[in-house]
Simulated scan of single mutants.
Amino acid sequence: MPIGIDAFDDEPEAALDVTPGTQPYRVLAFLAEHDDQAFTQTEIHEETGIKRGSVGAVLSRLEDRGLVRHRGRYWAIAEDDRLASFAAQRGASSASTTDDYHGGDEA
């Protein structure tokens, strides 16, 4: 679907879509869930289902924004308070989908 030229001109070049379901979100979510470990691109591909060729590009964009870090072949979530908040929000979101809500008929 095309976008208007105003949106094209106004979109910051460095914008990165990390809304739920996007590849950057899936990588961040996976790494945040395993913040005590580091993974190779192949392992991230296998765990997230993102195409092997796309994982490297996603990780590079996330690294450019300081959201992930790497050493050698291994990648991990960055040490950043924003990412701790991201992980906490994901945990709260998961918990809310499993909560049992009932109507107000109880007294």
Rank of each mutant, 00 (worst) to 15 (best):
P2Q: 13
I3W: 10
I3D: 00
G4N: 13
G4K: 07
I5W: 06
I5V: 08
D6C: 11
A7E: 03
F8V: 11
D9W: 06
D10M: 04
D10N: 14
P12L: 10
P12H: 08
E13S: 01
E13L: 09
E13Q: 02
A15G: 04
A15M: 10
A15N: 07
D17C: 05
V18D: 01
T19Y: 04
T19N: 03
T19I: 10
T19Q: 04
P20Q: 14
T22L: 07
T22C: 10
T22F: 07
P24H: 07
Y25V: 07
Y25K: 00
R26F: 02
L28M: 00
F30I: 04
L31T: 11
A32Q: 03
A32R: 01
E33T: 05
D35F: 13
D35H: 15
D35T: 12
D36P: 05
Q37K: 15
Q37P: 04
A38V: 04
A38Y: 06
T40Q: 11
T40G: 09
Q41G: 00
Q41T: 02
Q41C: 03
T42D: 14
T42W: 11
I44C: 12
I44T: 10
E46G: 08
E46I: 11
E47A: 15
T48E: 03
I50Y: 05
K51T: 03
G53V: 05
G53Q: 05
S54W: 00
S54Y: 11
S54N: 05
V55M: 06
A57W: 12
V58K: 11
L59K: 02
R61M: 10
L62K: 09
E63Q: 15
D64E: 14
R65N: 08
L67I: 02
L67T: 06
L67D: 08
V68N: 13
H70D: 02
R71Y: 09
R71I: 00
Y74Q: 04
W75L: 00
A76M: 08
A76V: 01
A76N: 04
I77K: 06
A78M: 07
E79F: 00
E79P: 01
D80Q: 10
D80Y: 08
D81L: 13
R82L: 13
R82P: 09
L83D: 08
S85K: 12
S85T: 15
F86Q: 03
A87R: 15
A88D: 12
Q89W: 06
R90K: 07
R90I: 14
R90W: 00
G91N: 14
G91W: 10
A92Q: 02
A92V: 09
A92C: 01
S93E: 13
S96Q: 15
S96I: 13
T97V: 04
T97F: 07
T98M: 09
D99V: 11
D99A: 09
D100Q: 04
Y101M: 07
H102E: 02
H102L: 05
H102N: 05
G104T: 00
G104V: 02
D105M: 08
